[in-house]
Nucleic acid binder design. Structure first.
Lengths: 205, 205
DNA sequence: TAGATTGTTAATCGATTAACAATC
DNA sequence: TAGATTGTTAATCGATTAACAATC
């Protein structure tokens, strides 16, 4: 397996999802890069290039066997479910936790944390809400692999510190503040207002 | 003004927000690229390069005048508020509409649409919910510049068609399905499960 | 065989980083 | 003046696209 570029990974994940749909809904056994291109919006050349990083699974003239290609691509995203801890059970946190697509994507929330005593102890969608004070005790036991920051902006650094200190190596940060973390921890910022404004700049330009 | 690269725009928007905070909270008159680097996480070289696309506003040895730099950068994102229409007032749609950061970022929801009769007619945060059937009539009057898809996956293409047909040139798509749109319409996909899984791949590799 | 499609190697493009001159 | 910081030009890096050979 060759070195996989940073940008191929999200595309590969999209191919996996597309293949799942083709297998389940359309019962397709084979698919060409051209068809994948029409569905995903990437060019067929790019798709073939991406796929070639993983395994030689296609047949000229025929395309790719859907199940085989899906398995080959999944080799990169281990088949296990990803375990996630949520920090901040407000409007956004709640919506994320209830997001239906996560179920089919094998993303599972294992616990949630908030500082509001009214929320602590409640169970939402089978996920229990704990006090943030108990996080350092509970997180390590829960085997969470990713922590989500959905708290108000001013708490975000504090939460990032808690998450990192528990040995969790991945943070998805929905707050509009960049947080600093120790070496070895990856942060994915999802900054909604910047997304909206950047799109607005695009359509203006 | 030189040609601004695709990737500088979101960074520039982040600089603007950072500068606002420096001005408002810390009452700073000057800031160097080094300090901006520490706050935003980008390198100081990159920041100077980005800024140089816009205007020559810095002074060697002193740095950038915060207010002046903010104004120079804002030249690209017109000072006007961005008007947004929301499609799908479920958990996620509701959370987006209530997202506090949007207020300071001058992002304003002008109306919302849903197909659930129980929701139609209600007003959330000052935003009225209409039937999706009335969208083509209401959107053009509302001067919406961006449409947000927060409906269940199977409706997303239909909604994208409605948004495009109203002359709206920007779509933020939270559904896990890529939508096809006419030439001239820009789509920003925010695909949460792919973000989570891609981060998971990162920390595994 | 002819034609379609894969997969690879080379060329191009764009963005980041390095080096350094300009200047307060 | 000396030192810090900006801003520009050149070099590097990475990713996409183009060209084409391989093959079913």
């Amino acid at each position: 397996m060759k070195k996989v570029s940073q940008k191929t990974i999200p595309r590969a994940l999209l191919y996996v999802r597309t293949l799942e749909n083709l297998i389940r809904k359309e019962k397709r056994d084979y698919v060409s890069s051209k068809v994948l291109s029409q569905i995903t919006g990437f060019t067929d050349v790019q798709i073939r290039k991406d796929i070639s990083h993983f395994k030689k699974v296609g047949k000229p003239r025929v395309g790719y066997q859907t199940k085989k290609l899906k398995e080959a691509l999944e080799a990169l995203v281990l088949q296990n479910t990803v375990h996630v801890s949520l920090f901040g059970v407000g409007n956004l946190g709640m919506a994320i936790m209830k997001y239906p697509e996560f179920h089919s994507a094998k993303i599972k929330f294992v616990n949630a944390f908030d500082s509001d005593p009214k929320k602590i102890g409640k169970v939402i969608n089978g996920v229990k809400i704990y006090s943030i004070k108990d996080a350092t005790r509970i997180i390590p036991k829960s085997r969470a692999q990713i922590g989500v920051i959905a708290t108000p902006e001013e708490k975000s650094q504090e939460i990032a510190d808690i998450i990192s200190s528990c040995g969790v190596k991945g943070i998805v940060n929905f707050s509009p503040t960049s947080v600093s973390v120790p070496e070895g921890v990856s942060v994915k910022n999802i900054d909604l207002s910047i997304e909206f404004l950047a799109l607005f700049c695009d359509i203006q330009g």
